[in-house]
Amino acid sequence: MTETVLETEGLTKYYGSTLAVDHLVLKIPQGCICGFVGRNGAGKTTAIKLMLGLLRPTAGSSRLLGCDSAALTPAIRQRIGYVTEGHRLFRWMSIAELEKFQRSFFPKQWDHKFFADMIEYFNLPKKRKIKHLSIGERAQVSLALALAPNPELLIMDDPTLGLDAAIRRQFLEGMIELIMRQGRTVLFSSHILGDVERVSDRIVVIDKGVLRANCSLEEFRTAVKKVTLSFPDSPPADVDIEGLLHCRRSEKELELILIGPADEHIAEWAQRNGAEKYHIVKMNLEDQFIEYTAPPNHRRLFQWEEK
């Protein structure tokens, strides 16, 4: 049976009277790469900090590697790599000094050769101070620091924030390097769904503090569909198709966001309701995420009038 490296039970967090995370129930199995996605202010960073014991939950609990998050021992922390949001490191330290500092906490498991290789790969001079590095270079250093102790669980909070495409690619390749090691688990939050799509095999979606999806990436990609249907006259008032999430209508068209139904069901409904034609729109993960988390009766910001 696959071991669970991370589980939360009713994890709730209030900031004052504002609800940030609402009864999060999550289980992350060992060995998966889990993309943790959500809109701005959805509660991703809060959830990650709760899991790492940096915040205290208002209710509920969380366990990492079998240990309660509120009481993570140094031994457990040694097995967890954490890349902080914004890659905040000690600005006055050089890369070499930072390595020496970090190494002190992993006397037995620090892989100096791996760290040196990564720094060389990223073309970073060891004597340069952190404050003289760009954000992309800091991200690379953060990743190297997090990977060098060979952690069982790697948690990254928006690691590619502010990075250009080339640096992001390098960063992800570094992550893949870790993935190739057996039994490692990665949980990373991101706004860039392309990155999630590229590396993750599991997706967790959080929206306004509430868990909306926790499944394999494949299941998510398969389940979320957009269908456009054209009608000779006005579309039916009552849209009773299975899995309907959103419905947008214009004069003679319907645009449906559906969760889960098979293509045959869609075809059968279209025919039954007199649709002239229907088309299942091919969406990338970003489109699927946007549609999945869009509020009901969502109005586009700019609505162009047709002339």
């Binding site: 868990l211 909306r212 999806a213 926790n214 499944c215 299941e219 998510f220 979320v224 999430l245």
Partner: peptide, 10 residues
């Protein structure tokens, strides 16, 4: 819980 939420703890 939304009926359509894809929470599949596999």
């Amino acid at each position: 819980r939304g009926k359509l939420d894809l929470i599949l703890n596999t």
